[in-house]
Write a protein that binds this DNA or RNA. Structure first.
Length: 428
RNA sequence: GGAGAGGUGGCUGAGUGGUCGAAAGCGGCGGUCUUGAAAACCGUUGAGUGUUAAAGCUCCCAGGGUUCGAAUCCCUGCUUCUCCGCCA
């Protein structure tokens, strides 16, 4: 949610800024509604004032033992008038809120212009692209040949876009998670948290998945309106929904490992092979709450924390600054980290790190007490994948494969694998 | 699943349908004292909206209702705690 004042006072500038990301703001409709709201609110408050004053007078008169019957008669029609005004106002406010809640964040001034993926800018490329003296296989062929990756059984159990892993590959998957969590908690200063994987509507509204992106989510058949989390961003960011934290506690850094569930509606036919795009995948998430003046720098360090994982794993990647039109709904600025996949001869997204500024915090009413003013002020929120575990697994498989189809375990993961150096069919 | 008790400001916690946005304490902030700090004492201190500033308005878990008037009464939901039952 953007600051409502922007819609009242600077709506034309706002519309121009949003156009950069391909969003066209209905200025005329919003202005008309806003004008109507203003006048309705004024008249409604005048009626409320009248009611309060007369009720007070009646109370006084009664206390003094006077006859209050004439006073009651005088306020006879007031109630109905007020009720009608309040109903109209609240309907209008809901209407406005629905519109404003659906307006995306304004791109930060440093965000590259452009509306499409090809306008994203390469910030840096790190690591050497591996060369093979044989034809590298993709992770599906590798995993199936090892007998450790099975999509057919998964689709029997559930359906498409699920995977079954076995043996050392399943262990490698777990090792990656442990390695990431340990790195973030021990080297990057994050506190590990465990959170629910099912969330309510309020939480999804807070981080911006609702009301606009309901079709991306799995909703439970339950009258409590529960959803499976599409990312740990939702429960972790909502840890502080409605809270006021002390400035001395900042910055707050949380990391967690959760499964993520995405309906992938609208992605039919895309990435149907392998583990790139699944309905269920694991992710280690980084979330930070910082003072507004710190968020820009924090996006750099947080992205660096995700990069550190790729570096320690020895994977080649590039850091992309997303253009205005390619960013998510709530983001003011986003870096994607794309890892090199030998089978595709291209980089694929493995992490997305964003600064939401106060966009989520305003929706969640997450504030801190500013020590200078003594007043509560909105925090800035950031998050990033550190990393998507399934995609990291397939990147490791493909980049560490050998001619015989075995997979070398990256040295940093060996302590988590009982010292195992190579995954081979014999190890199943 | 059954029975009972709660949900009030940053926190703890009072609050007979009318002067209650709400006692008190803690914490915070400012001051006195002190070389400095602590202690003590004095003052101040909810959030939002609105305004040049104010006034006004809204908010006592959420949503409905009763009433001229609701933190207070009624209904529904959510949630916390205690006891019983069941259970990984």
């Amino acid at each position: 949610m953007l600051d409502p004042k922007l819609f009242r006072n600077e709506i034309d500038q706002l519309a121009a800024a949003l156009k950069a990301r391909g969003y066209s703001l209905d200025v005329a409709a919003i202005t008309a509604l806003e004008d109507k709201r203003k006048s309705l609110q004024v008249s409604c408050e005048a009626l409320q004032q009248e009611r309060n004053a007369s009720a007070k007078n009646i109370g006084k008169a009664k206390a003094q033992g006077q006859d209050i019957a004439p006073l009651l008669a005088a306020v006879d029609d007031m109630k109905a008038k007020l009720q009608q005004a309040e109903a109209e106002l609240s309907q209008l406010q809901n209407e406005l809120e629905a519109i404003l809640g659906g307006v995306p964040n304004v791109p930060h001034s440093t965000v590259p212009a452009g509306l499409k993926e090809e306008h994203n800018v390469v910030v840096s490329s790190v690591g050497d692209i591996p060369s093979f003296d044989f034809e590298p296989k993709d992770h599906v062929d590798l995993g199936e040949a090892l007998g450790m990756l099975d999509f057919e059984t998964a689709s029997k159990i559930t359906g498409s876009r699920f995977a079954v892993m076995k043996g050392q590959l399943a262990s490698l998957h777990r090792a990656l998670t442990q390695f990431m969590l340990n790195t973030h908690t021990q080297e990057h200063g994050y506190e590990e948290v465990y959170v629910p994987y099912i969330v309510n509507r309020e939480s999804l509204y807070g981080t911006g998945q609702l009301p606009k992106f309901e079709e991306d989510l799995f909703k439970l058949d339950d009258d409590r309106e529960f959803y499976l989390i599409p990312t740990a961003e939702v429960p972790v960011t909502n840890l502080l929904r409605g809270e006021i934290v002390e400035e001395a506690q900042l910055p707050l850094r949380y990391t967690t490992h959760t499964p993520c569930f995405r309906s992938e509606a609208g992605s039919y036919g895309r990435d149907t092979r392998g583990m790139i795009r699944q309905h269920q995948f694991e992710k280690v998430e980084l979330v930070q709450f910082v003072k507004p003046e710190d968020s820009e720098a924090t996006l750099e360090t947080l992205t660096g924390h995700a990069e550190a994982i790729l570096q320690k794993l020895g994977l080649a990647y590039r850091k992309m600054a997303l253009c205005a039109g390619d960013m998510g709904f709530s983001a003011a600025k986003t870096y994607d980290l794309d890892v090199w996949l030998p089978s595709q001869q291209q980089y694929r997204e493995i992490s997305s790190c964003s600064n939401f500024q106060d966009f989520q915090a305003r929706r969640m009413k997450t504030r801190y007490r500013n020590s200078e003013t003594g007043k509560p002020a909105l925090l800035h929120t950031l998050n990033g994948s550190g990393l998507a575990v399934g995609r990291t697994l397939l990147a490791v498989m493909e980049n560490y494969q050998q001619a015989d189809g075995s997979i070398v375990v990256p040295p940093v993961l060996r302590p988590y694998m009982g010292g195992l150096q190579v995954i081979s069919a014999a190890g199943k």
